[in-house]
Design a protein around this nucleic acid. Structure first.
Lengths: 134, 134
DNA sequence: CGGTATCCACAGGGATACTG
DNA sequence: CAGTATCCCTGTGGATACCG
């Protein structure tokens, strides 16, 4: 799972609208389904354990939660701390870098909550028109 | 192709952290790879034609661009206007609802551009440590 | 020009079982 | 508790060809 390191890969551009641009890939990462939710949870509750996250993010599989946390840790957004107790305890929390993502992500989440009814209405109208035209 | 309309589906919750919540799905939609970029382009340049978008979003296939635009149109975020000329001209632009997404999305995009170097550095460090640790 | 239709490969992601 | 390993299926998304 070492993923491609790409340390010496030529960087075509820093414009996120260009393919192969690191910031476009990054944008894709942090905007991904579970990353948004994990980051949001850690932003709201502070340090969380694995099981807490799994319970709060209804429907996430262990595999995806682990995978998401590993990626976030690798990207320096989340810090993973192991407490060598028995049984072992592991806590996840936002790094300072991760903290800087709180506000943008919170804004996006709030948008989706505030405007979901409008979107739902738009869908119904679109579907209704498709039937008539269709 | 009518996708599930889900008009009468029971809504479990409006908390985006709950599975099956419409706002969580919506968050997933607007955060998706191409939707972010399409919305961003339309936010920057105003009305755009299909071919313009395809050229600016380097690497997007016609299929995905069409699919993304259809979803955004159905969600009421993008308006599609057909000018019955020969050859036909089609323009896409943000609706008022879509406009309200500009700022949150711009903030997120800016974040990824501003912090990409830190993330890249974090990855190298993480990978280096993984090698040492075996 | 601006799509739609079809085929196909592959990765994302779920379910389950097992381990330090 | 906090994962890892495995299997397997679906959806994503590319390539190609054709239509209004």
């Amino acid at each position: 799972m070492a993923t491609t390191k790409g340390v010496s890969e030529p960087i075509a551009s820093w414009d996120p609208y260009e393919r192969g641009c690191p910031s476009r890939d990054l944008l894709d990462q942090i905007g991904s389904k579970w990353a948004v939710l994990v980051l949001g949870e850690l932003g709201k509750h502070g340090a969380c354990r694995f099981t807490q996250l799994r319970q709060r993010l209804t429907g996430v599989s262990e595999k995806m939660l682990t995978q998401t946390l590993r990626t976030l840790e690798r990207d320096g957004l989340v810090r993973r701390t192991v407490y060598p107790e028995v049984p072992v305890r592991v806590e996840y929390e936002l790094t300072p870098l991760g903290q800087t993502l709180r506000e943008p992500l919170r804004a996006l989440t709030e948008w989706s909550v505030r405007h979901v009814t409008e979107v739902l209405a738009a869908r119904e109208e679109y579907d209704a028109r498709s039937e008539n035209a269709g």
